[in-house]
């Protein structure tokens, strides 16, 4: 536990000492903020038109700010996460393998799992800060409208769990190579693939489709964004994280043997 905290603190410190945290968080805030502006501005334009023109109103029915702003916004955040998180996780182990600092770290009285969990938690810390940067947007919706706050809460829970899955996969990719670009490319490709398999679900047979849908990393987020907490979704993300953190451990071990 003590080692875990020392490594966690060191990780967060080095994210801020090198500008990685600032760069990634800024890009994240700009992209999501911009998309939020587009979504919110469209919504207010629409509601203005509905007020002045009753024929449009009958077309849309009641305008729901949760469904038309909050949910699309969460989906945008999820996609930006998919792009930005590999850049956060790529350095986790790859940098240390390259610099040779891994050799020293592994000769300290630190268990492999403490090192991995410390790095995982460090990335999660930075990711949480990034996620907090999207709160003002949601607060703005709350100021001007009346969203369903339960959906906001479950949505953020979903984003957090999905981010954990992204980070664990990124950490694993970073543990198998000493090249940060390869680590980022591999994790981005893997996440994108896991994102896309959901779309092919309708094209294949029913059973295969179900399997693909279940594998899809975004499919499990949809219910969170609708305000539904489903244990199977939570378990999916937890198993996902456990699997890739375990694989990272095996990867460290195998690197040790090969020297």
């Amino acid at each position: 536990m003590k080692n875990f905290i020392f490594i966690l603190v060191k990780e967060i410190r080095s994210y801020f000492n090198s500008p990685v945290a600032f760069v990634v968080a800024t890009i994240f805030a700009v992209l999501t903020g911009y998309q939020f502006y587009v979504i919110f501005a469209k919504f207010s334009q629409l509601s203005f038109e509905v007020q002045t023109n009753p024929t449009i109103a009958s077309q849309f029915g009641a305008l729901n700010v949760t469904e038309m702003v909050i949910r699309p916004f969460f989906n945008v955040v999820a996609v930006v996460m998919l792009i930005m998180l590999p850049m956060l996780t790529m350095r986790a182990f790859a940098e240390e393998w390259k610099a040779g600092t891994m050799e020293l770290l592994l000769t300290f009285p630190v268990r492999d799992e403490e090192a991995i969990m410390g790095k995982f938690a460090g990335c999660m810390g930075i990711f949480t800060m990034m996620l907090l940067l999207s709160l003002p947007s949601v607060a703005l919706v709350g100021y001007f409208g009346d969203p369903e706050w339960e959906v906001v809460v479950t949505g953020y829970m979903g984003l957090f769990l999905m981010g954990g899955a992204f980070v664990s996969l990124g950490i694993f990719m970073s543990s198998i190579t000493e090249n940060q670009v390869i680590a980022a490319a591999l994790s981005f490709a893997a996440l994108l693939l896991l994102y896309m398999v959901g779309y092919t679900a309708g094209l294949v047979g029913e059973t295969t489709g179900k399997v693909l849908e279940y594998l899809s990393i975004m499919f499990h987020f949809e219910k969170f964004a609708k305000g539904v907490l489903d244990t199977s979704d939570i378990i999916y993300y937890l198993i996902f994280m456990a699997l890739f953190l375990f694989l990272s451990m095996r990867s460290l071990e195998s690197k040790r043997w090969r020297g």
């Binding site: 003590k2 080692n3 020392f6 060191k10 000492n17 090198s18 600092t101 770290l105």
Partner: peptide, 22 residues
């Protein structure tokens, strides 16, 4: 180790405290 691998983005006392903790 031969290559003296250290965290270049840390200050000297911070690094030594980190190692001391571990």
């Amino acid at each position: 180790p031969e290559t003296v691998p250290l965290y270049t983005d840390m200050q000297v006392p911070t690094y030594l405290k980190f190692v001391a903790g571990l």
